[in-house]
């Protein structure tokens, strides 16, 4: 089995969940038995894992499909509403930027409430990559803006704020990641606490 096929089985295992671990072992064992390339078999197993999981946990599918647009809409709503307030000088720039940085917190917290353990952080990492780098990819496709320019040494405007608030891409991504992690941890913690209290 190639490294790519192994990676496909790791993703399938995560999607299928613990209840179906034996079935994923069964699929992987068959892939080992294939003499030639087993990528097509592994891709089918990925599809099988997703189909089975969505059939068992409808909310899992809904969460995966709805989470990215929900996060984009929420971040957009916070950005545009505070941006107009900032331009009217009704709120300070640093306050608006702080709100943009903190905006994913409630959604990450919600994620922490509905998912636990390693699968929560896997899902969150996927969503983070999509939300953080998706717009850059879209700007590249739609307007031909090279992604490299967002990561150049002189770039100090990660949040697209007035240059008075100087935050570069590395600091911006780190701050965003910390907010996402803190939100997920809090959501997970409050859920565990509530379960312990009710139990």
């Amino acid at each position: 089995m190639s490294a790519f096929t192994r990676a496909l089985f790791r993703i399938s295992r995560w999607i299928a969940g613990r209840n179906r671990a034996e079935w994923l072992d069964a699929m992987a064992a068959e892939a080992e038995a294939i003499k030639g390339d087993s990528t097509a078999w592994a891709l089918g197993c990925l599809w099988a894992a997703a189909k089975d999981r969505f059939a068992r946990d409808w909310w899992f599918g809904v969460a995966i499909i709805l989470a990215p647009p929900l996060m984009f809409c929420w971040k957009g709503a916070v950005f545009f509403s505070t941006n107009s307030l900032m331009e009217e000088h009704r709120i300070a720039q640093w306050f608006a930027v702080a709100l943009w940085i903190l905006s994913p917190f409630p959604i990450a917290c919600l994620f922490g409430q509905i998912r636990q353990g390693r699968s929560l952080y896997f899902a969150l990492a996927g969503l983070f990559i999509l939300v953080e780098f998706g717009p850059i990819l879209l700007m590249w496709i739609d307007f031909g803006l090279s992604p490299i320019q967002f990561f150049s040494a002189g770039e100090v405007n990660w949040y697209k704020a007035d240059p008075n608030v100087r935050i570069g891409p590395l600091v911006g991504i780190t701050l965003d990641a910390l907010v996402w992690l803190a939100g997920a941890w809090l959501g997970s913690f409050t859920r565990r606490r509530a379960t312990r209290l009710s139990g």
């Binding site: 179906r20 079935w23 038995a33 089918g44 099988a48 189909k51 089975d52």
Partner: peptide, 22 residues
């Protein structure tokens, strides 16, 4: 019968076969 044998006998791909087996 193994999964691979069933796949070749029925002509089903792994993505269809395994949800059925489950």
């Amino acid at each position: 019968l193994y999964g691979l044998e069933l796949a070749s006998l029925t002509g089903l791909k792994s993505g269809t076969l395994y949800p059925i087996l489950i």
